[in-house]
Design a protein around this nucleic acid. Structure first.
Lengths: 172, 172
DNA sequence: ATTGATTATTTCAACGTTGAGATAAAAGCA
DNA sequence: TGCTTTTATCTCAACGTTGAAATAATCAAT
């Protein structure tokens, strides 16, 4: 027992219990969702800083890694990105515009379906991503170093269960 | 064993293992961070939709709840919000401007320190928040219903440990 | 008391995303 | 072959945030 080592969410819940004792029994979801929110913010900030140090926007970083892990021929349609990145079509258009200007990707319009636009990793984009990915994983390992790999494994298993419960079972 | 019920992150990691076998041993942080990212996106979208149905921006919702849970006299400085919400000062100014126009909060400039501006919940803001909070918690309970309250408790404990490890131990 | 450093908020231009509408191509169907 | 519906991307104005500069007030130290 004992709340010796509480986190920010413990403090927030404590405030609610004091201010709204009538809601005390309804606060349990905050224990999970509040923490997931805060972790999301903290990690996003970390990764955003990592990308920024290398001259990339977070969304651009996302495009690069999605493209590389998709494997040969390292090209995906704009629509595929829209789904993978959970953003709107306008955002994808803008990202590709910027990245094309940087020479990281190129638009290819050759397929049978002339509505679709394939976004392809350029040779330069390939090199950049290859380097970044290694450093990116090292950075994430650093972030979790104090938490420990064993705890990470247990946490990951529970997070997977939650994601499956919420229906997030596919990349598409 | 068996990956019968994998999530989106399993799929992503599978892609990386195929494309970059040299990184196979370095992918473990993704099991945690990738899932936290996706959960953050999914939950943010849910809560944003909830707030939007009630005519509120996510950030405005944040101000209201932070203010209410702070207890009497239901006022905080702009700086306190900046820290609590993890956003920049300009964002707070804008949020307060909008919410003041909606009659949810009011600026009070009376304290000894005349640099500081206290943001106070109006009577209307109070009523709105009181109602929303109950519905908000019900909505979060709904989101986690299929996951189960017991699993939620176990997950929450691990998330707390991670937050403490990352230094997120205080609201301030 | 005066000067300099610090703290709190506001201002504002730049930026990325949203979301609806426009454009264009493909698919379904008569 | 036409006509309608659907699908894919782009366009663009509105919006919220960022981050640096400006403004203003307090604090520290002599």
């Amino acid at each position: 027992m004992g709340d010796a080592s509480g986190d920010a969410v413990d403090a927030i819940i404590g405030q609610w219990e004091a201010e709204r004792p009538d809601l005390a029994d309804d606060l349990w979801p905050v224990q999970v969702i509040g923490r997931l929110q805060r972790l999301g913010w903290i990690l996003e900030k970390e990764i955003k800083a990592f990308a920024a140090e290398r001259g990339l926007e977070l969304g651009e970083f996302d495009i690069l890694t999605t493209l590389q892990r998709s494997g040969p021929p390292y090209e995906l349609t704009a629509g595929a990105f829209r789904k993978a990145a959970m953003v709107t079509s306008g955002a994808i258009t803008n990202r590709i515009d910027r990245m094309e200007a940087k020479g990281l990707v190129e638009r290819v319009r050759d397929t049978g379906d002339r509505r679709a636009v394939k976004i392809r990793l350029t040779e330069r984009g390939h090199e950049v991503t290859r380097t970044f990915m290694k450093e990116h994983l090292a950075n994430e390992a650093r972030i979790l170093a104090d938490f420990g790999r064993e705890d990470a494994g247990e946490l990951a298993a529970k997070l997977r269960t939650l994601l499956v419960t919420l229906g997030d079972t596919s990349i598409k």
